[in-house]
Nucleic acid binder design. Structure first.
Lengths: 135, 135
DNA sequence: AATATATTAGATAATATTTATTATTATCTA
DNA sequence: TAGATAATAATAAATATTATCTAATATATT
């Protein structure tokens, strides 16, 4: 909570209740979309405007505080910015799992085949998570 | 052209001018978004309705004739369905390049780490293409 | 080739998603 | 705590996508 305030202030963003609530919400759920953020926060702050969610999501994105995940056949989700990683999307339970995996060999192979200079990768794997396979 | 008609008919879709034009357009440009498809086809068929583009894109998607590519910070693009591959998105020229690369070792590593059963992968690499690096 | 039929296109309304505007309110610095 | 500034809520506007409905078209059948 104080940590979130500091995070905002260190980016010259005022630590408003709405922003803190948005960050807490994203942090709590791990990966969440706009509507779910809005619905969740409206419980506590019924006067919250959806435009405020959109405005702040864009603000937080531009300061690299959060990241956008584009998922196949789904709305965009957001997460707290972490080190680069892979997303595993379960078609059964719809949960998104983070996977921190060494990608250097894979990326080296891409560069050596194409000469492409890599900045970022956006990797989403679609399938069935371990839990859902067992149920 | 006849090949496209057959492709449509073999999926019980009537080979209308609009559908053929959409497929030809996607094929010609490789990777293209809705607006660009619409603008391009309007040159030939000025009465073409945008709803027709949307309707047919969804139709063609559902029959696995084309595929949707979600790109970071960009509109969705569409391509003719191919074998699974990777997309390289150049931040400089905005072109999308297909890369057919062996991903099995990488996927095996994901499965062995997580137990996740993989169906599809959506991999977009952001960076600078070889041509743009040299200019 | 003409006709019957079911499908599709076009026009447009409806819905969904996102952004901009503006008066009011909250945050933060001194 | 007051003042300067930035952020919010409410709402309108813009953009993107889908649904509806009638006329037109593609195709199979004669």
């Amino acid at each position: 909570m104080e940590k979130l305030k500091d995070l905002l202030r260190s980016n010259d963003l005022k630590a408003t209740h709405q922003r803190i609530a948005i960050l807490e919400c994203i942090d709590k759920f791990g990966h969440i979309n706009i509507d779910a953020i809005y619905d969740y926060i409206c419980e506590k702050y019924p006067t919250m405007s959806k435009a405020t969610v959109y405005r702040n999501i864009n603000e937080l994105l531009s300061y690299d505080i959060i990241e956008e995940i584009k998922l196949p056949h789904k709305n965009k989700k957001y997460e707290i910015k972490k080190v680069p990683h892979i997303h595993l999307l379960c078609k059964r339970c719809s949960k998104v799992e983070d996977l921190f995996l060494e990608t250097k060999p894979f990326f080296n192979s891409i560069t050596s085949h194409t000469g492409f200079k890599i900045d970022h990768s956006f990797i989403v794997i679609d399938g069935t998570c371990r839990a859902c396979q067992q149920s």
